[in-house]
Simulated assay, not measured.
Amino acid sequence: MGVAGGDEAGPGPLGALANLAAALAGAHDQDAVLVALRDRLAAVLGVADATVAVIARGAALDAGGATATAARSGEVTLGDHAASDGTIGAVALPLSDAKGQVVSVVTLSSPEARHLDGSTRAAARVAFELGCNAMRHLSIVVRAARMAALAGHLSGAVTTTDVARVLRDHGAAPVGATLASVRLVSAETGTLEGLVVATSLDPAMVERYVAVELDAPFPISHAVRTDESVWLPDLDEYAARFPEAAVDARAAGFAASAAVPIHDGAGAVIGVLAVAWTDPVRLDELVRAAVLTIADLVAQSLERARLTDAN
C-alpha cells in the first residue's frame, strides 16, 4: 500500500502541508489516504513527540474524548485528551465519504500542549480539508465506475422486468444506497406497481407496497403526482413530510430516501425511481445529480424495453 512521493518540500508547517497534499494527490485508495495522514500529521502540526492513529468510526465513538466528538460531529476537534489515556494534547480529524458520513477518525495525541494554539488549529483545518477532498475524489471515481457498470447492465435489459431487475441488483451501488427500485403507473388500476420483488425487504412490507395508490401519502406517490423529486436526507425530514411512510421506513431500516419521477419520450410521467439509504445522507448536488442520472438511464432503458414488451 504505497503513497506517491517525489521531492518533498522543506521543513515548517507550509512545507509539511505541501508534502501532505502531494501524498494525498497520489493516493489511489482509502487506505493510502489514511496512511498519508497518519505519516504526515505530526509534521503538519509541528509536534515531534506524538502518537498518530487511524480509528474506524465505530471504535472512535467508543473511545470518548476528542475522538468520539469528532466522529459524532464530523468536525476537527482539539481537546485536552484524545480519549482516556492521560495525554495532554489531542487533535482528531474526521474523514467523511461522498455522502458526508464519517468513516474514520485520524487522531494525534501528544504530551505537548503547545500544539493547541491558533496556528495549529488552522493547520489541522487545512489537513482536514485535504483529507476530506481526497476521500471525496476517490468516492467520485468509484461512483463513476459503478455508474458505468449500471449503464452496461441496463444496455442488455430486453424487457421492462429486466430493467427493474438490473436496477434492483446494481442501481443502489453508484450512490452508496441500500435499495433502488422502479415502479410504473398501471394504466388499468392507476396505481404504482413494482415489477420485481426487493429481496432485502420483509415479505410483509413487500406485500403492503405491491400496489400503491397515486394519492397515498408516500414519497413515491407524491413524486408522480407533482412531477417533482422528493429528497429526504434523514428520518426527521421523513417524519415531518410523510409521517406514515416514515414509520415504515424506520421499520425497514431506512434513514434516508429519494423519489424521482420517470418520464417517457414524450415527457409524460410513467413511473418513479425510489432509492433508500440505511444512514442519514447529505443529499448535496453531487448525490442528487447521480440519482437523477440513474433515473435518466432507467427512463431510456424502459422506453426501449416497452417497445419489446409491446411486441
Rank of each mutant, 00 (worst) to 15 (best):
G12Y: 10
A305V: 11
I294G: 08
R250A: 13
V247A: 11
L45W: 15
V52P: 06
V91M: 08
A16R: 04
A53W: 02
A172T: 01
G171S: 08
G26N: 08
V182K: 07
S200L: 15
L273S: 08
A9Q: 02
G6E: 08
E303H: 03
R146N: 06
G156M: 08
T178K: 11
I270Y: 03
A240V: 02
A148F: 12
E303K: 06
T51K: 13
V35N: 00
G176V: 05
L61N: 01
A239I: 01
G100C: 14
L14M: 10
L45E: 12
R40T: 03
V230A: 05
M147D: 04
N311S: 03
G65I: 05
R121N: 00
G58H: 04
D80N: 07
A127I: 07
A27I: 01
E193H: 04
R114A: 15
L24I: 07
A50M: 07
T87E: 14
R136G: 01
G194C: 10
R288V: 06
A113V: 01
R288L: 01
L41V: 02
G26V: 02
S73M: 08
D279E: 15
V287M: 02
R208I: 03
V185A: 03
D236W: 14
T278G: 09
F218L: 13
D264C: 05
A289Q: 10
H153C: 15
V54D: 04
L235C: 03
G118C: 08
A157M: 14
L138V: 02
V196Y: 10
A144Q: 11
A157S: 13
L214M: 14
R38Q: 12
